[in-house]
Simulated assay, not measured.
Amino acid sequence: MLTQSMHNRRSICLALTIGIALPIAIALPATRTSAAPGKTATAKLLDAKKQAIGTVKFAETPKGLQATVEVKGLNPGEHAIHVHEFGKCDPPNFLSAGEHFDPSKTTKKPKHEAKTKGKTPAGDLPNIKVKSDGTGTLTAILPGLNLGNGSNSLLKPGGTAVIVHAGANGKSTIPGVDAKTRIACGVVTP
Rank of each mutant, 00 (worst) to 15 (best):
G38P: 03
G87L: 13
P23Q: 11
L65S: 10
A184C: 00
G134L: 08
E113A: 01
S172F: 01
G150R: 05
S5F: 07
T181D: 02
G123R: 00
K57D: 11
T68V: 11
A15D: 15
G64Q: 09
L74C: 06
L145H: 04
K39D: 01
E78K: 12
P62D: 13
G144E: 04
F94D: 00
D178K: 03
G159Y: 06
K108H: 04
G134D: 06
K50D: 04
E60C: 11
G38R: 03
P91C: 00
L154A: 11
A52T: 12
V130R: 01
I20T: 11
T3A: 08
V187H: 01
A97F: 05
N127Y: 12
I26Q: 12
E70H: 09
T135H: 08
T189V: 12
D47M: 04
A161S: 15
L154M: 14
P23W: 11
I26R: 11
K44Y: 11
K105H: 15
L74E: 04
I12H: 14
I18C: 09
P23R: 14
L16I: 03
P121Y: 06
T31M: 09
A168C: 09
P157A: 13
D90Y: 01
K171H: 08
C185M: 03
I81A: 00
G150I: 10
D47W: 02
E99C: 04
V69N: 01
H112D: 08
K129F: 12
P29R: 07
D102W: 02
Q66E: 14
A140G: 11
T181A: 06
K63A: 14
T40W: 06
N127F: 15
T61V: 14
F86I: 13
A122H: 09
G158R: 10
P126F: 06
K156R: 13
A80S: 12
I174L: 04
I141C: 07
K57L: 13
A52N: 11
A168P: 02
T135P: 05
K131I: 04
L14C: 14
T116E: 12
A21Q: 08
T189C: 07
V164A: 00
S34F: 12
L138D: 03
A21I: 15
S172R: 00
K108M: 05
L125F: 06
G134Q: 06
D47I: 02
K171C: 04
P23Y: 10
T33G: 02
K109Y: 07
